[in-house]
Design a protein around this nucleic acid. Structure first.
Lengths: 240, 240
DNA sequence: GCCTTGAAGATTGTATACAAGCATTTTCCA
DNA sequence: TGGAAAATGCTTGTATACAATCTTCAAGGC
């Protein structure tokens, strides 16, 4: 009887009930979070996840710890895991960090970019335009990650990837109109083809600042998960 | 009988055999790694650590996973954990990342630095000068971390802290003369007191480039842990 | 003498059992 | 009827047992 409820709780995360490996579970959860199928504040009971993925709590705990270290999930002792609700302060922090990092990396990106890179970026941007809204968010994240990978600095790319994921959480909490990246990416591709550094950096700075400016920090509080926002959309738990 | 050997294997990590929490174990291992008491390539058997810290493998595995995500430890399936031996490529990657990040953050550091900050930095530099060689490495890492924390960007500070820790590993593998940071930090403090951005950035760039230039990448290979280096110092396993 | 093949030992991977803590509800008293 | 305290149930924290895999060592063949 518990199983049914647990399964329902996480409907939409997985395709069918089969045993998956560590990384596959991480991937599934990551996508569900970045695509806003799991909203900030949502609780992630270990038993429910274990049941849904057909593994024991051991693996689930490992995955949750990894997500927690990446700040996508908040782990509180004896209170379990829930999707992180970034505070306004953290949100501004992430955008400042992204402006700095992406701005700096663009120098090397412009130097090293190849036609293959441009093609890959074009393809992602294309998918982004035709994708459903949920997947568009994930593709937008992939676009930025792929772009910055061109700089060829694995350490910074990884750090930046985490910042990009967290941006998705921030938009989930504070986004007003439901837009993530308002599909400006094709414009950047045109600039990249031209190859002039200055306008590219300007574009990126405005791109990030524009997203940040579109947020509304007045709604929710700082510390606690914003249940108001959660309830506004739809509640995961059924009341039985 | 196993216990004795295990305990001996990790001598010097802990003060006495008592039960510690998750974070305390992480801290102990982190310090042991950064201070080069555990050299790159050293194996970290779960049973041995569990015995040494008086906890079960469960906690040890969690700590090892965290260290692995920070790239201080390498986890290979069915083959256990060992201290990461950065490849020359990774080493250059880390230094490039540090030059970029620390250079960029210095702008905000100079803007926001307070007398209290200067005092704290002075104190660390002072301890550094009087400390034993092992602890000096850790203090040097703390100096850089404390300095960059002034910029007030938690996300980037955290990423940078990981890069700084990894630098310690790099020095352990490729350092020729046993110098880590050759105690140039007081010079930086003088520049910070003057408050001119340009010379500070120049200093930092030369500082990092100088450390990188002092490394010798010809010795060890790329992929595997360098047992040559390990044996050169002293072996952890006794031959019984 | 060296390489290949097999078996024993040791270590990790996963699941589960039990203990500890928190949340909710129920009950009792004012 | 409202509030507070206690008890029950649920969730997580930790340890341990067992299975799977790798490594090592030994024996046999080339």
């Amino acid at each position: 009887m518990n199983d049914t409820r647990q399964f329902h709780l996480l409907a939409g995360i997985m395709t069918e009930r089969d045993t998956r490996s560590d990384d596959a579970i991480y991937q599934s959860l990551w996508e569900a979070i970045v695509e806003h199928r799991l909203s900030p504040g949502a609780r992630l009971p270990e038993d429910a996840l274990a049941g849904a993925f057909g593994v024991s709590r051991t693996m689930i705990r490992r995955v949750l710890q990894r997500l927690a270290l990446e700040q996508l999930v908040t782990l509180r002792t004896h209170r379990g895991a829930q999707i992180t609700s970034p505070t306004p302060g953290e949100a501004r922090d992430v955008f400042r960090a992204r402006r700095l990092l992406e701005g700096a990396l663009l120098t090397e990106v412009v130097e090293r970019i190849t036609p293959e890179d441009l093609q890959a970026l074009t393809q992602i941007a294309e998918q982004e335009r035709h994708a459903r809204r949920e997947q568009a968010i994930r593709l937008s994240a992939r676009f930025h990650a792929r772009l910055m990978a061109i700089a060829g600095n694995a350490s910074l790319s990884e750090a930046l990837s985490q910042l990009i994921s967290r941006t998705s959480l921030i938009i989930a909490v504070y986004g007003r109109h439901r837009a993530g990246c308002p599909c400006e990416h094709p414009d950047l591709i045109a600039l990249l083809e031209a190859g002039e550094l200055a306008p590219i950096q300007t574009w990126m700075h405005q791109h990030l600042t524009g997203i940040e400016a579109s947020l509304d920090f007045t709604a929710s509080g700082d510390a606690l998960p914003d249940f108001e926002h959660l309830f506004g959309h739809h509640r995961e738990q059924n009341a039985s």
